[in-house]
Write a protein that binds this DNA or RNA. Structure first.
Lengths: 193, 193
DNA sequence: TTGACAAAAACGAACGTTCGTACTATATTG
DNA sequence: CAATATAGTACGAACGTTCGTTTTTGTCAA
């Protein structure tokens, strides 16, 4: 790999970390350059604009999410087992980040900020919901879910649950959060069985 | 009311509006002053610091939320009727804001930002969860909920549902969101009945 | 393996603007 | 007339971005 690509990865890694703590909008080129000990202008040259940097951080996070959450769970037998594994790796993903999940924070940050960042995020979120839909379909095929299950409703229910978990876990630091999540998930799955 | 108090309300109103679109951290004193057509320094004098401004915006939002969501629903007969009314006014609350719900965005913004703003937000969120808990307790007393219902779990479930609704509604602009919410709410209530 | 050389990458300085905050002075209010 | 409220000006720092220069890298001939 060429030198420039290596540097870019270092930048994106630090950028993701910073975005997870402060939000994408507060990732400043100056502070990011300071963290990885390079010059503002040298860093800037890799992206040509702050907006591009933000989009690339988001895409970098998307690749990581795919690698550590989606791909592994698709290797597991379809159905409830897969869904539970997915939830586990999903939680690990957001726990691994210094701050909160970047997709959660970006979703609130950019719901009213037109531009490339918002468009990128929207694409990612819709893809993710489609992915959840397909996982529910596979659960129908495997016989774990009833045949008449509304897969888009499943996606909504599961995503909602994870958002609740994220709030309780990251902001409120509630000690019973894992238990709450477990109960809610069991109830959710029972409703579709 | 004194002149200063009137001005302060104008500021907080505009500040809440801006915070709902851009997030509390991006409410700048300069841009806010421009919006309400007064000088930066004149506006600043009301708060002595940006942090105080943010805290006051949050408390202003809290008072509004209490007036338009909590108080009205407590006037309704306890139980399922009250809960449904609460959800309705909760949705109206976040629809009325130009951007998203300020509590949702602030929750992700300040989960890793120590300071007065975070402390204020934490207090509000814990109060709100306690409020949901008491509403569930009242539903038990009224006979709508089973006696063994875990009220804190109810709070978690309902808050999760609302967070999902908020994401679908504000970012994804999903046309089926209201239907999804309705289905999830009915299922939630049935589980506690 | 080395030396030369072009391409790529990183740098430092500066641009104009905005940030939050601190002062002092002028208007407005009670 | 005193108290309160608003305006004006200035500050140092940080913002994103541009520029020209220097350093580092990869390639190819010797």
């Amino acid at each position: 790999m060429k030198k420039g690509q290596e540097t870019k990865i270092v930048i994106l890694e630090a950028g993701l970390d910073m975005a997870s703590q402060l939000g994408l909008e507060c990732v400043s080129i100056g502070s990011l350059a300071k963290v990885i000990k390079m010059s503002k202008s040298g860093l800037f040259a890799h992206f040509q604009s702050k907006e591009n940097l933000q989009v690339e951080i988001l895409n970098y996070a998307g690749r990581l999410f795919s690698e550590s959450v989606i791909v592994p769970s698709l290797k597991i037998k379809a159905g409830i087992t897969r869904i539970k594994a997915l939830v586990d790796s999903w939680i690990n993903w957001s726990s691994a980040l210094t701050g909160g999940c970047i997709f959660v924070s970006a979703s609130t940050e950019y719901s009213d900020r037109p531009g490339k960042v918002r468009e990128c995020l929207l694409r990612q979120q819709n893809d993710w919901i489609d992915c959840l839909d397909r996982i529910a379909q596979a659960a129908i095929s495997s016989g774990d879910f009833r045949a008449d299950v509304d897969c888009q409703q499943f996606a909504f229910d599961l995503y909602s649950l994870m958002l609740g978990f994220h709030l309780y876990f990251k902001l409120l630091d509630n000690s019973e959060t894992k238990k709450r999540k477990e109960i809610a998930l069991d109830r959710l799955l029972n409703n579709y069985r």
